[in-house]
Each structure stands twice: as structure tokens, then as C-alpha cells.
Design a protein around this nucleic acid. Structure first.
Length: 190
DNA sequence: GTAACGATTTCCT
DNA sequence: GGAAATCGTTACT
């Protein structure tokens, strides 16, 4: 199976558009000579400065979040409750916005994923969460700061896209004021 | 150096 | 549906 890597300009669009555009495309990880491919089914936009739920709210900058201020197309991984979350830096340099990959469906390298995840790919709970998919794809903090444009981890173009993604309210961020009502979470329209 | 918090997952009731 | 687990990063003394 060959998956065409999406070029750099793809990432240089608004965070919302990027979040929608990612749905239906492939998340690809070249790991130890094996190709792991998952179809992206769920994403979430984090609008940095305006978004209280985001680590870069108010242009806050720390060691961990500085990658958000770099050029779009970078990999931003974040450790949470012993789990690793995967983000795609969007917009443009100096604009700390990113898209969180929240869910995938295994496509290629399934046996390897099952081994990494320790669960059957038949299970609907296999990779339907931010921490689960990073485990299934073998993604860790090692990926922090890499680029989707020329690294072992990248987004692959899927010729046959599905219908328009559905926007929903976000979840899991109850303590972030009004930001939790923003419809910035996108799921595949089935 | 120490304390508090969190973009989650999983298990229990 | 609700609570505990669990640990790196952040913020504060």
C-alpha cells in the first residue's frame, strides 16, 4: 500500500479548516520498517490565544508549548495521565494553534497495532480516543518537535474522502469556562 | 524543592 | 454514569 504524503501547504490553513480537512485522511507512521496507517475519524481544533482550553491560551509560552509557535506541520505531543496526545500545529508561525487527533480507524499494519495496543482491532474501543490512538500507532514523546512534512510520521492523502465532517461540542474540558461550548470537535459524517 | 493540576482511560456500581 | 488511577509539567515558596 502506498500513501501519498500531503505537502507542506496543507497545514498552512486556518485551524478549523485543517481540523475538518484531516477527517477521512490517513495518519501514517513508519515505525521500525513497518507502515502503520489509520484513517482519521475525529479531530478537535484548539485556537490558542482565544481558547481557554488550549495550552497556549493568552499567548502563554512554556518549554512544552513553544512548538505551537513554530511553523505549521510540526508534531506536538503532550503527556497526560500517562497517555500521549497527538497534535498537528496549524495556521502559521507565531500563531499558537493546533489540531488534536482524537480518533482513528486501523487500516494498515493492524497486527502491529494490536500488539502495541494490547487489544483486538475488532474492538470499537480500539483507537477511538486521543491516548488510545497514540498507543496503537506507537507514537510517544519521541515524536515531539518532528515534522509531518519530512518525518517518519505524516498525514497521507486519501483520494476518496467522505461527506462533510460533523461539528460537535467538545468534551473533557469542563473547567475551562465558555470555551467548552465551542463546536470545534469534528467527527466523520457516516 | 514542593504542591497542584490536567486536551484521559479504565474499572466499578 | 461516576470515581479512581497516576505522573509529567507548571506554578509557587
Amino acid at each position: 500500500m502506498s500513501v501519498e504524503r500531503i505537502p507542506a501547504h496543507f497545514y498552512a490553513q486556518s485551524t478549523i479548516d485543517l481540523a475538518k480537512a484531516l477527517i477521512g485522511n490517513y495518519l501514517v507512521h513508519f515505525l521500525n520498517g513497518e507502515l502503520l496507517v489509520g484513517r482519521i475519524t475525529e479531530t478537535e481544533a484548539y485556537l490558542g490565544v482565544l481558547d481557554r482550553a488550549c495550552h497556549s491560551y493568552g499567548r502563554k509560552q512554556t518549554k512544552r508549548t513553544r512548538i505551537l509557535y513554530e511553523d505549521p506541520g510540526h508534531v506536538y505531543t503532550y503527556t497526560m495521565h500517562t497517555h500521549c496526545l497527538l497534535n498537528v500545529v496549524a495556521e502559521r508561525s507565531g500563531q499558537p494553534e493546533a489540531v488534536l487527533i482524537r480518533g482513528i480507524e486501523p487500516v494498515c499494519g493492524i497486527e502491529k497495532m494490536e500488539s502495541l495496543r494490547g487489544k483486538s482491532a475488532q474492538d470499537k474501543q480500539f483507537a477511538n480516543g486521543p491516548g488510545k490512538l497514540t498507543q496503537a500507532m506507537g507514537i510517544s514523546m519521541n515524536a515531539y518537535g518532528e515534522s509531518f512534512i519530512d518525518g517518519p510520521l505524516y498525514i497521507g492523502y486519501n483520494g476518496q474522502k467522505n461527506g462533510a465532517p460533523v461539528a460537535t461540542r467538545r468534551i473533557g474540558i469542563e473547567n475551562t469556562g465558555q470555551a467548552k461550548y465551542f463546536p470545534f470537535r469534528f467527527i466523520e459524517n457516516k
